[in-house]
Structures are given as C-alpha cells and as structure tokens.
Amino acid sequence: MQSGMMWKLASCTLCLFVSSQITLWSVSAAADDSDGEVKIEVLFKPEQCDPKSKRGDLINAHYDGYLAKGGTQFYCSRSDKDGHPQWFVLGVGQIIKGLDIGMTDMCVGEKRKITVPPSLAFGEKGKDPVPPNATVIFQVEVYSVTRGPRSMEAFGEMDRDKDKSLTKDEVKEYLKLQYEKGGKPNDDPFYEKIMADIFQKNDNDKDGLISANEYNIYQHDEL
C-alpha cells in the first residue's frame, strides 16, 4: 500500500462509482485464503460507548473502500446516494462478511479502519472495479446503532396496535423515538427516507404493511 495514502472521513476525493450498492455485495469465502482474518484498527472511540453494535442491529454509517494494493479508492458513501450515510442491518449479509465482522461492537461516533481479506470481501472473482483476490480496506464511522428492526423485540415495540403488522406511521414513530432517546432528533424528511427504505426492502407483497413473517428474516433465530 502506498505510504502517501490518506485516510479521510471528512470527504471523498477519488471515488470510482460501482455498478451496484456495496451494501448488496456478498461473495462466498475462498477456501484457499491463507490470511482469512479481519484486521481492525480503532481510530477513535468516544468515552461514552453504549450501546455497542451486534448482529441484527440497524446501523447508520459512512464507509469508504480502498484497495490494499496501491490504495485506490473504489467506493465512497459520501458521494453515493446524495452523500447520505448508509442504512443496513448488521450480520445478515447486506454488507460483505468482513464488514459484518469488523463493525461488530462499534458505538455511535466510533471510527475504524478495517482490513478485509479476499475470502471475506469479493473473493476469487472480484466485483468491478475490485479485482479478483483483492484485500480491501474500509474506513468507517458509525452515526447510529439501534436495536435491529429485525429483532422481534423491536417489532413488538413498533406494533403499537398489536395487530401483528407494521404501518409506515408505526415504523416512523419508532425511529423518531430512538433518535430522540439518543439526543439526536432529526426533521421529518429524514425519518421518511429511512422508513421508505425499510418498506422497500421488507414489504414483499407491497400491501403497505410489514407482517411479522416479512420482518423477521431470522425466522426462529433468537437475537
């Protein structure tokens, strides 16, 4: 990796846009990878570090991806989708496996540099513009950690009328309460955007409601 490579969280200056969202990329592990461990370097950690992220939590974060060899930047969340931080559920394959591992036990405001081997990134085939068998490095900053919108505990809290389904108003109200409890309230368009994304990904029959079955991707998996 080039010694002059700059790791910057404030802005992205060398983004190469990818053909699909990085949060949707996943590959199978390569069996012959000799260095299959994720390496984590904590760059900043707040004194108040609770709650910490775990499998099933809803995470809001910025992350930038670089090739370990040469330092070329291949992804920049600050340039994708109008620069909004990315929303995803941790540990369910919405991001590459190496990030699912490397972003565990992070708290709001924490920053990490995460080095991911090919077997836990894009594998033997790669994913344009990431070449085959490439080790990648992500710089991440977490803005929000909330109890997963995929835990049945959270479902119960959102389902105010206890009819075993979630309306858009119920989901939006839950998000507002979570942010207010964290001392970071936002305006209505902010919650509308998150709510719309949750319904797009979970309302499989497009009836305007999220059923318990649509919501719980773990099925019988306890969180």
Rank of each mutant, 00 (worst) to 15 (best):
Q2T: 10
G4K: 02
M5C: 11
W7A: 09
K8I: 13
L9P: 01
T13R: 09
S19Q: 07
Q21G: 12
I22M: 12
S26Y: 06
V27T: 15
S28Q: 10
A30R: 01
E37H: 10
L43W: 01
L43I: 13
P46K: 10
P46N: 10
K54W: 08
R55H: 12
G56K: 01
L58W: 06
I59G: 00
I59Q: 01
Y63G: 03
Y63F: 15
D64G: 03
D64M: 05
G71R: 01
T72C: 05
Q73D: 02
F74N: 03
D80F: 13
P85I: 06
Q86L: 14
Q86I: 15
W87F: 14
W87A: 09
F88T: 00
I96Y: 01
K97L: 12
G98N: 06
M106K: 02
K111L: 05
R112V: 04
K113L: 15
T115R: 02
G126M: 11
P129E: 00
P129H: 02
V130P: 06
P132C: 13
A134I: 02
T135N: 00
V136T: 14
V136W: 07
S144A: 15
S144Y: 04
G148S: 03
F155C: 03
G156C: 14
D159C: 10
R160E: 11
D163G: 05
T167I: 11
K176F: 07
Q178S: 13
Y179N: 14
Y179T: 00
E180I: 15
G182P: 02
G183H: 07
P185D: 08
D188F: 06
P189W: 07
I198V: 15
K201Q: 14
N204E: 14
N204R: 13
G208D: 10
N213T: 14
I217F: 10
Q219Y: 06
Q219K: 14
H220T: 10
E222S: 14
